[in-house]
Design a protein around this nucleic acid. Structure first.
Lengths: 147, 147
DNA sequence: CAACCTTTGCAACCCAGTTGCACGAAATCC
DNA sequence: GGATTTCGTGCAACTGGGTTGCAAAGGTTG
C-alpha cells in the first residue's frame, strides 16, 4: 500500500496524534516496510531524525495503539504498524511472525493468525506474541545446496 | 522437584557437560525456581558467582540444549530448564508462557502446549516462542478491587 | 613435577534503549 | 499582534544487560 503524507496525517489524527513532520516520516517508513523494523533500522532509514526522537515517536505510537512491538530474540525489539480495521484499542490482525536465525530477519506471516489458547482461570489476556524460529526459505535453500 | 548435587551432576553429564561447582549451582537454581529466571536474577540468587561466569554457564547450557531462552519483552531474556524426556536436541515440553505487564513476572503455563501453525512452503521451523501477555491472577484481582 | 587445558573473576567494553536539558516552533492567551 | 505557555526536537549523557580480553586459579595428563 502506498502512503502519501495526507493519508498519514489522517491516520495519525484518527489515533489522536498531532501530525508533525517526524511523526509522518516514521509512520510512512513503517508503513512502507514489508517487515517490522527495529529502532536502529528506522534511524538508518531516516538519517535526518535523531535516534531519541524516533524513540519518542514510537513510544507515542505505542500508547495510542498505532504500532505494536514484537520480540524476536535478536535483542532489539521491532515495531510494526497495527492494521486494525476499527482503528483503536485491540488489534484484529495479530499474526504469526518468523525469525530467521541465519539472516536475522523477521518476517510477517500475515495470512496465518495466531492460534488462541485457553489459559487457566484468573489470567487476563491482553495480547500474544507468537514467534516461530528457524530458517527462512532463502536461507534454507542456500544451506541445502552446500552454501 | 528437589535437586540435590548428585542429581545435577548426572543431568549435566547426560548432556555432556563437565560438572563444576558453578554449573551445578546454576543448574540447581534454575531447577528450583518455579519461574524462568533472567541473568540478573540468577546473579542475585548466587552472589558468590560472577555475572560473566553465570553468562558463560548459560551459554554452554544453551549449546547443549539444557536450557532454552524466552523473550517476554521485559528487555532481558529469561532462561528455563528444558524438560525434554529424551534429554537432547528437541524439547518436547514447549509450553505457553504468560508475562504479567503489572508485576513483570513470567509464568509457565506448563499444562498448555504451544499450538502449532502451518507455515508457508520453504520455512524450516526450529522452535516457537508463545508469549501471552496481560495480567496475572494476583494482579488482576488486585486491580479489580480498587488497587 | 612440569606442561597443558579449562574454568573463573575482574575490568573493560558495546550497544540498545532511555532521560535531562535547552533551544526553537507552535498553540494559547490577553 | 505580541507576550506567555506548551509542545516537539536534537544533543549529550547515562543506564543496564549482555559480552569479551586477559590473567590468575584449578584441574588434568604424561
Amino acid at each position: 500500500m502506498k502512503y502519501n503524507s495526507t493519508l498519514c496525517e489522517a491516520l495519525l489524527e484518527s489515533h489522536e496524534i498531532k501530525p508533525t513532520a517526524n511523526r509522518i516520516l516514521v509512520l510512512r517508513t513503517l508503513a512502507e516496510a514489508r517487515q517490522p523494523l527495529s529502532l536502529s533500522e528506522l534511524e538508518c532509514e531516516m538519517l535526518s531524525v535523531d535516534r531519541s526522537s524516533v524513540f519518542r515517536v514510537l513510544t507515542l505510537f505505542r500508547e495510542h495503539h498505532l504500532v505494536h512491538v514484537l520480540e524476536d530474540g535478536s535483542d532489539s525489539v521491532r515495531y510494526e504498524l497495527c492494521h486494525s480495521t476499527d482503528g483503536h484499542e485491540h488489534d484484529d490482525d495479530q499474526h504469526v511472525h518468523f525469525y530467521c536465525e541465519q539472516c536475522q530477519q523477521t518476517f510477517c506471516i500475515t495470512d496465518v493468525p495466531i492460534p488462541t489458547v485457553s489459559l487457566p482461570d484468573g489470567y487476563v489476556l491482553e495480547s500474544v506474541n507468537y514467534m516461530a524460529k528457524g530458517l527462512c526459505p532463502r536461507c534454507a535453500l542456500r544451506k541445502e545446496k552446500g552454501r
